[in-house]
Design a protein around this nucleic acid. Structure first.
Lengths: 212, 212
DNA sequence: TAGATTGTTAATCGATTAACAATC
DNA sequence: TAGATTGTTAATCGATTAACAATC
């Protein structure tokens, strides 16, 4: 069924999902590749190609059933699960991520938050106590989280990553400036480089200003 | 000088910048495309192609001068400026962005934070008072911010965007789930879709688990 | 049945990689 | 000068778009 799926396709899946859920909420039960293409600013061809990487979800002469398709994509993404996750770093960013994200709706179960600062140990964040990083080993042996969200400074990243890998962590949602590429190129990582995004934004603004 | 620069190239610029600054900090004054390629996990060819979109910064037989190149890229990105920025939404995410990001080092000057909640009006966040959204018009007329960071829920986005456009805002760093594509396709936007990223991460984890 | 729209193959386009002459 | 490495052109690869037969 599943052909070789390119990174480009995978990156588009969450967006498809978002639009389909939105349609579903608005009571739309049926949509054609052309209709969805228009809404999303893509070509109908691309949508059909993308979806056909995973199977024939449509019907000739009819289009796609919205709830069916959205649930297929949820399945493909694997978000109907509850993979155990911990956040490392309970600074501004770590705390915001923990309260702002719907981990449970997106495939994860947030079970712990850690920081090295003694002062904030015990503080409650989104119903979870901030634990001291010194208890990380024991916690992992007991609760076996599978992934970690890195909200720590770059200079602490490498040491922490090594420790987490030893403790059975299988992937990283990386908000730090650390680049896994150099030393851990085979570990599954999804990077969120906010600084890069802000710089790209800066470029876009500048370009647009010069254009007009 | 500047050829048609593709999105792919632009997206890579901040990463080049990051690595070059890092090299600079470590006292490296000179690097070849091959050396940088190895560090970054790219091909030397790609690096030379990318940089040559903007000019010939290297020297045959020598390579690139690190501080010179990093400052060239800073120039290209436009981060040596101070474009006035405001944050809309002082929830967890808005507050984290305001304290966590080095706006001043990345081309911006954060001059205001707004929220519609009366209760938090006046609270200090990173040295700035949270202002009530009711004062947005007056603030913009006085201080003329050029860009806005959207940290508000999707359902308030459209109305707010329209208002901000009228007030002279020229671009959006968008953390909301709102999709500019449908109604504001010509406005400069840099999206940070954290949920999309988390879903992509979910897929990667699943893929990797199945592979092993 | 006729119309609509898919799944899929073929054509096009763009981005990446390879090659090499130019030159420091 | 000889060696190294760029800038740039050509070749390859992959992703997007177009086209159309299959079929609901």
């Amino acid at each position: 069924m599943q052909k070789n799926v390119s990174q480009s396709v995978i990156k588009r899946l969450p967006r498809y999902y978002r639009f389909l859920i939105d349609l579903e909420k608005n009571g739309v039960s049926r949509i054609s590749s052309g209709g969805l293409a228009q809404k999303m600013g893509l070509t109908a061809s691309q949508i059909r190609q993308d979806l056909n990487c995973f199977g024939g979800f449509g019907q000739q002469g009819y289009g796609y059933n919205v709830p069916e398709l959205s649930s297929e994509i949820a399945e493909i993404l694997g978000i109907n699960r509850r993979v155990g996750a911990i956040i490392i770093g309970a600074g501004n960013l770590g705390r915001a991520i923990s309260t702002h994200m719907s981990f449970e709706k997106l495939g994860f179960n947030l079970i712990g938050i850690f920081d090295k600062k003694e002062a904030i140990t015990g503080q409650m964040v989104n119903g979870l106590p901030v634990r001291n990083i010194s208890g990380l080993d024991e916690f992992c042996r007991s609760y076996k989280p599978k992934v970690a969200v890195l909200c720590i400074p770059q200079n602490q990243a490498e040491k922490t990553i090594k420790q987490l890998l030893k403790l059975g962590i299988k992937g990283f949602w990386n908000f730090s400036h650390y680049d896994f590429n150099e030393k851990f190129s085979d570990v599954p990582v999804e990077n969120v480089h906010l600084s890069d995004s802000l710089m790209t934004f800066c470029y876009k603004i500048k370009e647009n200003a010069e254009k007009n």
